[in-house]
């Protein structure tokens, strides 16, 4: 999600909150729900549980979003992460939530994409969240800070460090494969 997409998401929700425009909300929902579902699947949530969490996240989102329209996408992900943590705690065995999506994508997918997902999947969960929110979902550092409760400066520094860490691990893997 680029800056333009982020601004568009905000405009759609302003339209929805001020005028009750359902088409505007439908468009926002179509933009975000699929990506949110895939985010949850990669975060280790089973397929059916991911649909349930998407439903619950949007239900809560719709109740609070009009109170503060500054960073709606960040708000949606904050709600989702909280719900996912709660669901994880409720199911102590975590059997429902451990059956997440594998790093495998389509069979004809470039190997480097699969390798990158595998590298990211090795990181601690909080660091995966940072990388995905910044470089896949496209949130700004400030929005991620709001979503995760960390200082914006820490988010900025940590995302840069994580990129470098990924690159180094990729290099090590390449050397390993070469020997």
């Amino acid at each position: 999600m680029s800056q333009r997409e982020s601004a568009e998401a905000r405009q759609l929700l302003e339209h929805y909150c001020r005028e009750g425009s359902q088409p505007a909300f439908d468009r926002f929902y179509r933009q975000q729900s699929g990506r949110l579902w895939r985010f949850l699947r990669f975060r280790g949530v089973a397929e059916d549980a991911a649909y349930d969490l998407v439903a619950e996240a949007f239900l809560r989102f719709i109740q609070v979003v009009c109170k503060d329209l500054r960073a709606p996408v960040a708000l949606l992900y904050r709600i989702t992460l909280n719900l996912r943590t709660d669901a994880w705690r409720r199911s102590q065995t975590a059997s429902d939530y451990a059956a997440g999506m594998s790093v495998q994508g389509h069979h004809d997918e470039p190997a480097e994409q699969i390798h990158l997902r595998r590298l990211i999947g090795r990181l601690p969960e909080s660091e995966q969240n940072l990388l995905l929110m910044r470089y896949w979902i496209g949130l700004t550092h400030r929005e991620i800070a709001e979503a995760t409760g960390q200082p914006a400066g820490t988010v900025r520094r940590r995302t840069a460090e994580l990129l470098e860490q990924l690159r180094q691990e990729w290099e090590q893997d390449s050397e390993h494969d070469g020997t």
Partner: peptide, 21 residues
């Protein structure tokens, strides 16, 4: 290994390529 500058684009492509709902 890609450059650090190329990684953000690769991450986006890698996760957009995941099977959708």
């Amino acid at each position: 290994a890609p450059d650090s500058a190329d990684l953000p684009g690769l991450i986006r492509n890698a996760f957009d390529a995941l099977p959708g709902p």
